[in-house]
Amino acid sequence: MRTTVADVMTTDVTAVNHKASFRTVADLLISKAVSGVPVLDDDNHVLGVVSEADLLAKEEFKELYYDDAYRPPLRARIRHAMGSEGTGSYKALGETAGELMTASAHVTTPDSPVVAAARLMDRYGVKRLPVVDADGRLVGIVSRRDLLKVFLRADEEIRALVLAGIPTSAMWTDPKGLDIEVTEGVVTLNGIVSRHTEAIAAVRMAESIDGVVAVHDELTWKHDDVIEVPMWGGA
């Protein structure tokens, strides 16, 4: 029931070929109002990402597209300052997207859980991830905003997902007998199930749904089939 990147990604991706000129990349970032785009080889493989921070290594970026009052985002200023020695001086000489980009882009795949993508963004401090297929070719892009939508699901949608996740198989004596309430993402499970293990499974299933903030377990059961394993100690 976990949402995957394929469920939320954008397939209409703004990207550039590695041979694209500095001016082409700069025009694209400004016209599309984005802070970075994937850089592709001639076969659509992702080589890296070129960002506003990368272009700041060239002073003409500021001169061409911003006035003297322009202050780039803090993250861009930090990256520019950290790259002012070594790679920064190299990028100042770069003329194409391939020369200006940050290589080894962090990417994700369509079948990756959105939680994993969110952790990857947080770990590397990026706002978006190119999505690639098994051959490394670009198939989409996923942003922080895309991921946030999953965790801001409406209560009724969450309730429907919880209800749909309850099997009508023998595991449940009477699924319709469960009372499911959702308030601000907090799920409360009420009702009587046949076995204690069924109650545990219901809680775990609800907790696995993206967008659920917490689960309040108020279930009761007719038979306690949870086996207590004795703890043995000795001197």
Rank of each mutant, 00 (worst) to 15 (best):
M205F: 09
R195N: 10
H216F: 10
I200Q: 02
M171T: 15
M205S: 08
S169N: 15
T220R: 14
G185L: 14
V186N: 05
I209M: 06
I200L: 11
M205H: 04
I166T: 07
P167W: 02
V213L: 09
H216E: 10
A214T: 10
A170F: 14
T188P: 00
G211M: 08
S169A: 15
L161D: 01
R204K: 11
G191Q: 08
R159W: 05
P175G: 02
T173S: 14
I192R: 05
E156T: 12
E157W: 10
I209D: 00
A170S: 14
T220M: 09
A206S: 10
W221T: 01
A170P: 07
L178D: 09
T183Q: 12
E181I: 13
A206P: 00
R204I: 09
H196F: 12
A160E: 03
V162G: 00
G165R: 12
D210T: 06
D210P: 05
E181Y: 14
A199C: 06
R204L: 11
H196Y: 13
I158R: 00
E207L: 11
L219E: 07
V203L: 11
V193H: 01
T168P: 12
V193P: 03
V182L: 06
R204S: 08
T173H: 11
I158K: 00
I180V: 15
P175D: 00
E207N: 11
N190L: 13
T220G: 12
H216R: 13
R159N: 11
R204E: 08
E156M: 09
L219H: 05
P167D: 06
A164I: 06
V193S: 04
S194I: 06
A201S: 10
A202M: 12
I200T: 12
D217E: 12
T173L: 15
D179M: 12
A206W: 01
L189H: 02
A206D: 01
V203R: 07
I166Q: 00
K176D: 10
M205E: 07
L178S: 08
P175S: 06
T188C: 12
I200K: 09
G185K: 02
E156V: 08
L161R: 00
A160Q: 07
A206L: 01
